[in-house]
Computed example of a mutant assay.
Amino acid sequence: MHDTLLIDRAPLGADLFCETWTLNDPASRNALTDAMVDALLGACTRAQSDGALRGVVLRGAGGHFCAGGSLGGFAKAIGQPLDAGVPDPLVPLNRRFGALLQALCGLPQWLVVAAEGAAMGGGLGLACCGDLVLADADAQFGAPEVTLGLVPAQIAPFVVRRLGPAAARRWLLSGARWDSVAAQQAGLVDEVVVDGAMDEAVQATIQRLAATAPQAIAATKHLLLQVQSALPLPALLDDAAHLFARALRGPEAPQGLAAFTARKAPPWSAVA
């Protein structure tokens, strides 16, 4: 049986790495099986404590990003009511995908999503977790759940975070498909890649991000997640002040400021 998630670890510099996580079930357009979700969760857990890992690229094999959730594990429950008082086993199965989306958003490394072909349903949820989203000109995005009598349950909060409430309503309640240009206009996609040059676009993005300081990236991502939470503004600004103070007193600030003054690359930069 093939691995549902391929992980390629490539060097960025001395003891620095970037990983590409490739969803690997081309026959199903990389539909999210339980095994694939488990593999992605495992990769996220490992990445949390990997000090040498600077960033992650998430993409799909076979010309598609991800066609959404696989209903294989739910097939016997379709249309079948639950006996009274019995805990529904579908609840933790669905909730586990939400845990994956939360883990992807919480990665301390930068996360680049490279979307080609279909990015539907759960695939749209994955795309909403990217710090930067690149999309092939022919990519298609959407949340077709409501057209199938289903609910876009776990992806909804992440779609709202990425697109804002008004655009999220249009996307989640219509079930429509959106091309890359429309997705860029909505705020999901950062760059539309033409002429099939996704590999080149990914490498150019990695090179830009390779100049960033890892601890500063982790702290900034933490702050951005706090902004999206219901934390009151005074508490949010208190947290931000502590993050700033720790960064200024930490090892990266003196190195980065000294390198700036000397017009040299800082020690963490993998850019030549």
Rank of each mutant, 00 (worst) to 15 (best):
L248H: 13
L23C: 09
W21K: 12
V133H: 02
C44Y: 07
Q203S: 08
R162A: 05
A43Y: 03
D195A: 12
T4N: 02
R95Y: 11
A176Y: 07
R161C: 09
E200L: 07
L173P: 04
A197L: 10
G187A: 06
D190G: 14
G123N: 06
R54E: 01
L172W: 02
L58D: 09
I206S: 01
L248Q: 14
L93F: 11
P108Q: 06
M120Y: 07
A168H: 10
A253N: 11
A166P: 00
A201C: 07
D238G: 06
L172I: 00
A201V: 01
L173M: 14
A14L: 10
P266N: 12
G117T: 02
V194T: 10
G130W: 06
R246T: 03
S269Q: 05
G196P: 13
H242R: 15
V86W: 09
V91C: 09
P214W: 09
A168W: 05
D83K: 13
T33G: 14
P81F: 05
K264W: 00
L233G: 00
Q207E: 15
G85P: 10
Q207S: 09
Q215D: 10
P157F: 07
V192S: 03
A14S: 11
A253T: 09
F74Q: 08
P11D: 06
V271N: 14
A156D: 01
P108L: 11
V56S: 05
G51W: 12
A186F: 06
Q203C: 04
H64K: 07
R9V: 02
A245K: 10
P81T: 02
F17M: 00
G72C: 06
F97E: 08
P26G: 10
M36L: 15
P152W: 03
A27D: 15
G51F: 08
G98E: 06
V202D: 06
A270L: 01
A270S: 14
S49C: 07
E145F: 09
A118Y: 14
A210Q: 08
A47D: 08
